[in-house]
Design a protein around this nucleic acid. Sequence first.
DNA 1: CATGAATGAGCATTCATTCAT
DNA 2: CATGAATGAATGCTCATTCAT
Lengths: 205, 205, 205, 205
Amino acid sequence: MSNGGGSRAREPRGDKRERILEAAVRVFASKSFYTATVAEIAREAGVADGTIYLYFKNKDDLLIRLFEERMEEINEGIRAAIAPFERPLEKLRAFILHHLREVERKPELGEVLIVELRQSSKLMKEYEARAFREYLGILSAILDAGIADGSIRPNVEPRAVRRAIFGALDEVALSWLLGGRRFDLSRNAEQLAEIFVRGLAAEGA
Amino acid sequence: MSNGGGSRAREPRGDKRERILEAAVRVFASKSFYTATVAEIAREAGVADGTIYLYFKNKDDLLIRLFEERMEEINEGIRAAIAPFERPLEKLRAFILHHLREVERKPELGEVLIVELRQSSKLMKEYEARAFREYLGILSAILDAGIADGSIRPNVEPRAVRRAIFGALDEVALSWLLGGRRFDLSRNAEQLAEIFVRGLAAEGA
Amino acid sequence: MSNGGGSRAREPRGDKRERILEAAVRVFASKSFYTATVAEIAREAGVADGTIYLYFKNKDDLLIRLFEERMEEINEGIRAAIAPFERPLEKLRAFILHHLREVERKPELGEVLIVELRQSSKLMKEYEARAFREYLGILSAILDAGIADGSIRPNVEPRAVRRAIFGALDEVALSWLLGGRRFDLSRNAEQLAEIFVRGLAAEGA
Amino acid sequence: MSNGGGSRAREPRGDKRERILEAAVRVFASKSFYTATVAEIAREAGVADGTIYLYFKNKDDLLIRLFEERMEEINEGIRAAIAPFERPLEKLRAFILHHLREVERKPELGEVLIVELRQSSKLMKEYEARAFREYLGILSAILDAGIADGSIRPNVEPRAVRRAIFGALDEVALSWLLGGRRFDLSRNAEQLAEIFVRGLAAEGA
DNA sequence: CATGAATGAGCATTCATTCAT
DNA sequence: CATGAATGAATGCTCATTCAT
């Protein structure tokens, strides 16, 4: 994004920015935004404290950028995952399965987005959270399409339901992460998908 | 001092503890656990900073007690709300409606339980969270009963689903709170209840 | 002293004052003047915090009174111990033996006088320390008498030597106390007495 | 900043650590360890409060390092001072004279080592006090040598006597310091040396 | 660009002291 | 006299941020 894109595959610059973000993921995942220190992130990233301020305005900014950029990647993954499906409820099922599969695949990242995002919701309240709105937008689109083609009950309100779906996914992921990743997240994903698909489906479906 | 006097010359001792808890609700709801200062809570409660330490071990303890005690009240309310119903799915509907109605009734309290609890999930991770486990226990019991009497699909796993339900309720409440309480939470509650009841119901129901 | 004396052997009043002093001895002996809290002393004495302020102006005053009153008792003991002896060097020997024997007999008291007195030397600097000056006075008198009767070398300066003797006794007592009271303090007392008597004695003695 | 510039543009880094230690000497000497504040030491050293924590773990650590490092210097001085002498009792005399001469030369340093060390004896109890044990070791070695070559009475116990000597020196130094440095410490040193040398000497010496 | 020493505002917590009962 | 709840000033320590090199 800020790399200017180009022919060079990997600038030595910008590399450092990425290392900081990755370090932040690891640190925030284990300590909480307010408990984590900038010095800790710097150490984890192998850079000097001051270097962080060359790439990010301040600690808050670091969290916001982290969230935005990771969320964007997630959104792209979701779009790719639901694209193959035609029918809205199948898209929804794919959405749910994909979300939890991603958490399973990159637990630390999941932890940051889930736990830490919440930890600073007051912080988040103040910024636009564009990428998160996009995430919700994808859900809305699915629901809208389902209502439009009659596969979802007409009295469903997408704006409310999309939050509920996100909340359910998020909480299940959270309990999996905090609980030591003991149970099988994929099977839970199936359960959730089933519940929401059945719960939203129009009578005749 | 600010009691304005009344029938009782001086509130009983424990009164001060309650005032601190109430102040903590207000402050945590507006600032975040880590951002809020003890001095601020004290000021809000109309007591000296040191007084807080007569009733709570430290700032962490204050949050935990707050959560536990409020959560217990909520649990009692839920129990009362679902008691009149016989059938599990009706109990579930009552549960969902009651949860969000409570948030609507005491928004600040809801905010603390929802937002702030998450903000310090790392903190919470370390304490047993007895009252929260009780909350989940009520949900489990409903689901178990439904599976037992055949009203809920037999392949539903209560341990996964209960987190999903809580997550959905929580997130909807959160978006209502952070979004300025603009939409009608009760109507959303109906939507959620409908989705979960339909989503869980056994075929023939 | 402040009891007003009288026929009654033990007033119920004043008793409390003594209990506070005794508690202070125990607490100061185990924590240090600045580390010990008034509340701790009150608990140890079995009185309310505020009660201490009925008998002592403040925490500093408590330490000073404690020191003064205990030191007075010690001085009386010393006077009695050296009285039977005629010759100054024998009085000196008795002085030294008595001092360390007292420490051995009431270790906690010794600890307060030794360790804690030093801990607040800045505090002590400001008050007259009458009882301690009396203690030194007894030593001076012995030394003066010895010089006068020729048993002590004439070029000895009592004002310097008396501090040295006190310092030696004090340090030996300290090391015994802090070292867990492991060695035989009485035998050390003999050693010290021998050294000082020989070190001060006039040639011909 | 306050260096006034000079030949060197900016003192080497470690300079700051030394300045803090020197400031600590001055502050502890005038206030007592517990009464002195970290902010005061920082101000005296001309650094920010936080800077102290770059060089020392905490306030306790500052005192301990201060004691250890200064004591080491003293030990080296003593070793140099007694080296020229052959006979143990002459070494002892040199030891005593040197100790008090050092106090006279650097009163504030003396005050810290003497007064403040005692003030936190509870603190000191817990750390090994290596340098102080070394100090006592030098004394022991002298006494042992004297007993071995017959110049000191055979029934003298070095472990007891060395504490007595230290205590005597310490107390004399203390009274000189607290008493406003009015009398001639060197002459007192002579007196002490004479007493201990005579007091320890074997009969025939 | 990068560093990391230095800064100093900010905060949780303690505790001597007071005073209404 | 006695109590002990309440006070709030005081302090050790942390950590985001800066800036000279």
